Simulated scan of single mutants.
Amino acid sequence: MTASLPLAPVTPAPVLRLVAQQEGLLQIHTAPFRGSFGSVLSQALRTAGLGSRVLVSQLLKGGVDQGLESSLWLCGRLQWLRPGVPYCISEPAASQSEELTAQSLAAQSLAAVQQVWAYSRERLLSGAVDLLVLDELGLAVELGYLDKAEVLATLERRPVHLDVIVTGPAMAPELMAMADQVTKLRRGL
């Protein structure tokens, strides 16, 4: 008769579980020049096409006098928002101009950028979107249109599922430190 060896206890394989809600990323696309928006817009369009809710806020890109009331909708899920001014913004918010016209344009620019930010901030904090693109956010802060402390506090309080992409040539070190992913574009070597 042969002796039978005792069988080793079978331990069940760990159960794989799908995560119900993915953790969102804070991504930064930066370059010493303006021009990182194209690749980010294609990502936003792809995301909207796959069924996610997307808000693209171009904080300093006017030129089409769009504003909140005339924002564009693409793919039925992507809202594209620009300041309601008929020009692109490139001057500091606190420009020390003596001309009344220049002062009123600066005030109009400041109000338009802050309107876009307020709407974007509300959508971010409420979790009403799955992806938020903040084009030229760092430059809007550097030029004095947005308060850096408020922007950082808002991004820290974003819902866990929400992806945020920030683009532009100027990024505060505190913002760079918060990022999960940083993409730096460069021209030539």
Rank of each mutant, 00 (worst) to 15 (best):
P86V: 00
E156M: 11
H29S: 10
G67M: 07
V85C: 00
D65W: 03
L81M: 14
L59A: 05
E99M: 08
S52K: 09
S97D: 12
E23F: 06
T101G: 09
F37S: 15
Q96M: 10
L152M: 08
L137R: 03
L74F: 13
S36C: 15
V116L: 06
P92C: 07
S39A: 14
A94M: 08
L55S: 04
A106H: 03
L50Y: 09
V113F: 06
Q21L: 10
V129P: 06
E99I: 02
V133Y: 00
S52Y: 12
H161G: 15
V116P: 00
A106L: 05
W80G: 06
V113W: 05
E156Q: 15
L131M: 11
S126Y: 04
G51C: 11
V19C: 13
G49H: 05
Q96A: 15
G49A: 09
G138V: 12
S120K: 02
G38K: 13
L110E: 10
E91H: 12
L55G: 04
L143E: 03
F37K: 13
H29R: 05
V151A: 11
V151C: 12
G84L: 03
Y87I: 00
V64P: 00
V56N: 01
L68G: 04
G51M: 13
L162H: 05
V54F: 05
A48V: 09
S39K: 14
S71A: 14
F37R: 14
R123C: 11
V64D: 06
I89M: 03
V141Y: 04
L152A: 08
L55W: 01
V19W: 04
K61M: 08
Q96I: 09
L155V: 03
L137C: 09
Q103K: 10
G38F: 11
E99V: 04
G138D: 13
L41D: 12
E91F: 12
G144C: 06
R121W: 04
A118G: 09
P159D: 11
L155W: 03
S104K: 01
L131Y: 06
G127W: 03
V116Y: 02
L146C: 06
Q66A: 06
L55A: 06
E156K: 13
R121F: 05
Q115S: 14
Q115V: 02
A112E: 00
S42T: 13
L134V: 04
P86L: 00
E142N: 10
S42G: 03
S120A: 15
L45A: 10
E91C: 09
Q114P: 07
L137Q: 07
A102Q: 10
S104N: 10
L143N: 03
L18S: 13
K148I: 08
S90M: 02
L146R: 01
S109P: 02
L59Y: 00
S120M: 06
D130S: 13
G38T: 11
A128K: 08
V141K: 01
L143Y: 02
Y87N: 00
L155G: 06
V160E: 15
V160R: 13
A102P: 04
G67P: 02
V141T: 10
F37H: 14
F37C: 12
R121C: 14
V19M: 12
S95L: 14
Q115Y: 01
R53D: 12
R34F: 01
A149W: 04
V129E: 15
Y87S: 00
G62V: 01
